[in-house]
Amino acid sequence: MSYVFLIIDGRGRGSWLTPSLVVAIFALLFTVGSFWWIQVRRGLLRAYTSHVYSGGFTPAKIVLVLPLVVHNPAPAPIIVTDLRLRVDTPRGTAVREPALPIYLSWIASHASVYPQNESRVYAAPFVVAGRTAIEEFISVTAP
C-alpha cells in the first residue's frame, strides 16, 4: 500500500512517475480506446425477417424468397459473401424429424418478395456500411 503512495506522491525511487505523467498516459489510453470504439470496431451483423415470404417446392427441391433487413451496428463496413438458412425443429422438442436440419443455400436476390417478370441477380457479395441497415430479398434453395 505504501508503494502506491510512493508512485503517486513522487517520493523516493519512483519519482520519475509523476501525477502529470500518469494523467497523460491515461488520457492517451482513453483517446486510443475511444478512436477504436467509434471508428474502427468490427461488429456482428444482425438479420431481421418479416412474417411474409414466398416460395415453392417439389419432392426434389425447395425454393424460398425471404425479405431480410441486415443491420450493421458497428462503425466499420462489413461484406456479406454468403448466406445460409437452417430449418430445424424448435429447441426442447422431444420428437426429431429424420430429414431435419435442412440447409438452404443463397442463390439469388430479387426486387420484391413476390418476383414477377424480373431478372434476378445471382448471389454476389454486398456491403453493409457502418451503422446502417439494408433490405434484401434473398432467394434460397435446397436441392
Rank of each mutant, 00 (worst) to 15 (best):
53 Y>F: 09
119 S>A: 07
105 S>T: 01
133 A>L: 03
129 A>N: 13
19 P>Y: 06
45 L>T: 01
92 G>R: 05
9 D>S: 13
113 V>Q: 02
9 D>A: 12
25 I>E: 13
111 A>D: 06
29 L>W: 04
116 Q>K: 12
106 W>F: 02
33 G>E: 14
104 L>P: 05
71 H>E: 15
57 F>W: 08
123 A>T: 06
130 G>M: 03
87 V>S: 01
110 H>S: 10
34 S>A: 08
8 I>H: 13
120 R>Q: 05
23 V>I: 07
33 G>L: 00
22 V>T: 11
126 F>R: 03
8 I>L: 12
119 S>G: 15
72 N>P: 08
17 L>I: 13
89 T>E: 07
74 A>D: 11
2 S>Y: 01
91 R>A: 01
62 I>W: 03
15 S>D: 07
142 A>N: 15
40 V>F: 02
68 L>E: 06
100 L>G: 04
56 G>T: 10
22 V>H: 06
21 L>I: 14
17 L>N: 07
50 S>T: 10
89 T>I: 01
127 V>T: 08
102 I>S: 04
63 V>W: 02
36 W>G: 01
7 I>Q: 12
50 S>L: 15
36 W>I: 02
101 P>S: 00
116 Q>L: 14
65 V>L: 09
71 H>K: 11
42 R>E: 03
135 E>H: 09
130 G>S: 07
80 V>K: 05
118 E>C: 05
89 T>H: 05
75 P>M: 01
142 A>W: 14
120 R>V: 00
130 G>Y: 07
86 R>N: 10
94 A>V: 05
129 A>V: 05
39 Q>N: 04
110 H>C: 11
124 A>L: 11
11 R>V: 10
119 S>I: 04
40 V>E: 06
60 A>F: 10
132 T>K: 05
127 V>I: 13
90 P>K: 08
40 V>H: 15
22 V>M: 14
51 H>V: 09
20 S>K: 10
44 L>H: 09
106 W>T: 01
46 R>H: 12
87 V>Q: 00
86 R>I: 04
18 T>C: 09
34 S>R: 10
69 V>C: 15
41 R>C: 02
41 R>I: 00
102 I>E: 14
50 S>Q: 09
27 A>P: 02
38 I>L: 12
140 V>T: 02
69 V>P: 11
134 I>L: 03
69 V>K: 11
12 G>D: 06
96 R>Y: 03
123 A>Q: 00
37 W>S: 12
95 V>C: 04
98 P>H: 15
108 A>L: 06
19 P>A: 04
128 V>F: 05
111 A>Y: 00
57 F>C: 15
30 F>M: 05
9 D>G: 08
112 S>P: 03
22 V>K: 08
47 A>T: 08
52 V>T: 07
19 P>I: 10
52 V>I: 01
14 G>P: 00
27 A>L: 11
45 L>M: 08
79 I>A: 06
16 W>R: 11
118 E>F: 12
116 Q>N: 15
121 V>P: 11
23 V>A: 13
101 P>K: 00
26 F>E: 09
18 T>Q: 00
69 V>Y: 01
85 L>N: 05
60 A>P: 02
66 L>I: 15
76 A>N: 13
82 D>C: 06
19 P>W: 08
108 A>K: 05
61 K>V: 00
114 Y>K: 14
30 F>A: 11
87 V>W: 11
58 T>W: 12
121 V>D: 08
15 S>V: 13
8 I>F: 10
31 T>S: 10
99 A>W: 11
71 H>N: 14
112 S>C: 12
10 G>P: 06
